[in-house]
Design a protein around this nucleic acid. Structure first.
Length: 598
RNA sequence: GGCCCCGUAGUUCAAUGGAUAGAAUAGAAGUUUCCUAAACUUUAGAUCCGAGUUCGAUUCUCGGCGGGGCUACCA
């Protein structure tokens, strides 16, 4: 619902009062964009109003249309098709709005910090293996949502919690001790996360061999999996870590350090960052006090064996464990502690948004309910930004089966494809090597980000490594290419001494195609609003694509700088500038940069 | 078994209960004296099945069928 819809709804309410003596609330007026095959700009659906008008949909629409044309100076004409009242808005309205938008660099954006403080958590990897395609979707999504919320006017804090402790990292550590021969990232030339990941794989291989041996020796597979010596070693190591054993902690710090170094490089390439990092090793014990306190308040209860639980059957869920019988914390305990810690770290925090895969929907449902029962204020506002799996043609990615698409490899491949394409087209010879390298990343990474963000988060999506990510069609490179064309014209304006400053626009300069393009651009404030409310970057991606497609079509048969009618030329330059600017700022919210040349 | 999500052109994705279900790709046919052809134009092609609610259902309800996930004293 944008400004115009708002005005029209108000008018429609008046029309209903005047024509039918009916009191209708503005919320009952159904407004939509008029479909392009009909004449008009906005459409009021007449069906729902018939019970007020006591007339047929056609007569209802006709009566309202007559009244609106006569009484609302914004409306130039109307047409009733079946039960739909199509309204044509006076062209000067669009021109006026366009002019205002052109002179407002932050057009469509909310005033900074005009909305509550929110926290967006994303990434949150384990430190025992490198980042993969699923993490890319997570990071791009979380980062983009943060940018969108910020653009909408929220103060945003980007965080992640790093799962730096636990049996998984101990597995890598044990394997490194046994098979590593003192290897380091320096000695091998490998990224630290890759090196540690290799030992995780090595652990798994050794573990499987041991299990096979034990099974051959007569054990059941189940027993063998519990008693494999290397697993026992890893468990012993975790125990030592928890005791604070110096040697183990030192190794743990060293290997995690390698991983952070490697992750840091990957984050830089991805273009994402964080305002604060939380480490599970700092927070994993935090929730215990909260649970003890909750126990006293009677929110939780203790079973005969000493374990602590919450009963959520009144909320339609079941019982959930919070402390083991030995009193140690579980995942949920830690999340309770971390959530509460964050409220105290950032006073005034309205809500936390967790970017985590949809397989954890149940977990977060439970977490939010527990927080609420513990009396955490605003707990119900927290949001699990749940997203679907990235599926490969052969099914789910499984690190143990080697069907993982590595994040670094994929990004390198994307930049490489961009290089091949650009070289073939041969339009960038005059760029320096570093400019070229930057361009290939802008285009290649842009294509990847757009590919992952254009799909609604909640849906699982298909990624076929063999088909590779497209660079033509509904893609970032298509959008970038059109931005480059627009930018090229604007640069030429400067060279030709034509001003791009927009002071006035001739309202008669536009044809129907142009009006449509302008109208689409003017939807941007409402679109951004929607994207922020729904935490959905695909809404922004969609808008940018539609706008670009409209521009591309228009560009094809409308001379801009070459237009002889100067009033038209200036109007078109203004429109070009408007579109280019909006493409750039909307794509920036997806973390995608626009090149100046390609 | 229980709970949750998803089924739309060959393929990958759209569509607050609204008009003739949109795009993109792949297919077929075209467009470069002119601001960047990574472009543009034309063409063909789909709502898993069955009921129900509604003036109107891809959308809501119920029942099938098919796919995925959760259902750990793992994280």
């Amino acid at each position: 619902m944008d400004q115009l819809d708002h005005l029209l709804a108000q008018s429609a309410v008046k029309a209903c009062a005047a024509c039918f003596e009916a009191t209708v609330d503005a919320s009952q007026i159904q407004l939509q964009q008029t479909r392009k095959e009909f004449e008009g700009d906005r459409t009021i659906v007449a069906f729902p109003l018939t019970r007020h008008s006591k007339k047929s949909p056609e007569e209802t629409g006709k009566a309202m249309g007559e009244w609106l044309v006569a009484h609302d100076e914004l409306i130039e004409a109307y047409q009733v098709v079946k039960g739909f009242l199509n309204l044509t808005v006076v062209p000067s309205y669009w021109t006026k709005e366009l002019l205002a938008a052109c002179n407002q660099p932050a057009y469509g954006l909310g005033a900074p910090r005009s909305k509550p403080k929110v926290m967006v958590e994303y990434s949150s990897p384990n430190t025992n293996k490198p980042l993969h395609l699923g993490h890319l979707r997570n990071n791009f999504l979380g980062y983009s949502v943060a940018r969108i919320l910020e653009a909408a006017g929220h103060e945003v804090i980007k965080v992640q919690i790093i799962n730096d402790r636990g049996i998984h990292i101990c597995k890598s550590m044990v394997a490194w001790q046994k098979f590593g021969n003192g290897e380091t990232p320096e000695s091998t030339g490998l990224k630290g996360d890759k090196l540690v990941g290799n030992y995780y794989v090595a652990f798994d291989r050794a573990f499987k061999e041991e299990v096979a041996k034990l099974v051959a020796g007569g054990q059941t597979e189940e027993d063998a999996k519990k008693s494999a010596p290397i697993l026992l070693e890893a468990q012993a190591m975790l125990h030592k870590w928890e005791q604070g054993d110096e040697e183990v902690v030192a190794l743990w710090k060293t290997m995690n350090g390698w991983v952070y170094e490697g992750f840091g490089q990957t984050y830089t390439e991805m273009g994402v960052d964080f305002d604060k990092l939380y480490y599970e090793s700092d927070t994993y014990l935090l929730g215990k006090d909260q649970v003890e306190a909750g126990l006293e308040k009677g929110v939780f209860f203790r079973k005969g064996d000493g374990s602590t639980w919450i009963d959520l059957s009144d909320e339609g869920l079941d019982e959930k464990l919070l402390l083991r019988k030995d009193g140690t914390a579980v995942y949920m305990t830690q999340d309770i502690g971390t959530a509460i810690l964050r409220y105290s770290d950032f006073p005034g925090l309205e809500r936390q948004i967790y970017t985590v895969g949809n397989e954890q929907e149940y977990h977060f449902k439970v977490l939010f309910k527990i927080l609420k029962k513990l009396g955490v204020e605003g707990a119900e506002k927290n949001h699990h930004l749940s997203y679907g799996m990235v599926e490969l043609p052969e099914g789910k990615m499984k690190s143990r089966e080697g069907t993982v698409v590595d994040a670094d490899d994929l990004m390198a491949e994307m930049a490489n494809t961009a290089r091949e394409m650009a070289t073939e087209l041969g339009k960038i010879e005059d760029l320096s090597e570093s400019e070229k390298a930057r361009l290939f990343k802008q285009v290649g990474y842009g294509a990847l980000k757009y590919f992952l963000l254009k799909v609604s988060p909640s849906k699982s999506m298909m990624f076929d490594p063999k088909a590779s990510v497209d660079f033509i069609g509904n893609t970032a490179p298509f959008i970038q290419f059109n931005y480059v064309r627009a930018n090229s014209i604007l640069t030429k304006c400067g060279a030709a001494g034509v001003t791009t400053e927009v002071k006035e626009i001739d309202a008669q300069a536009w044809d129907a195609d142009e009006l449509r393009l302008i109208q689409h651009g003017l939807l941007w404030p409402g679109t951004l609003q929607t994207a922020a409310e729904q935490c959905d970057p695909s809404v922004v991606a969609n808008h940018a694509y539609e706008l670009t497609k409209g521009f591309s079509r228009w560009y094809q048969d409308h001379p801009i700088l070459n237009e002889e009618d100067l009033a038209k030329r200036d109007a078109r330059i203004a429109l070009t500038q408007f579109v280019a600017h909006q493409i750039k700022s909307s794509m920036a919210l997806l973390g995608i940069e626009m090149p100046v040349k390609m």
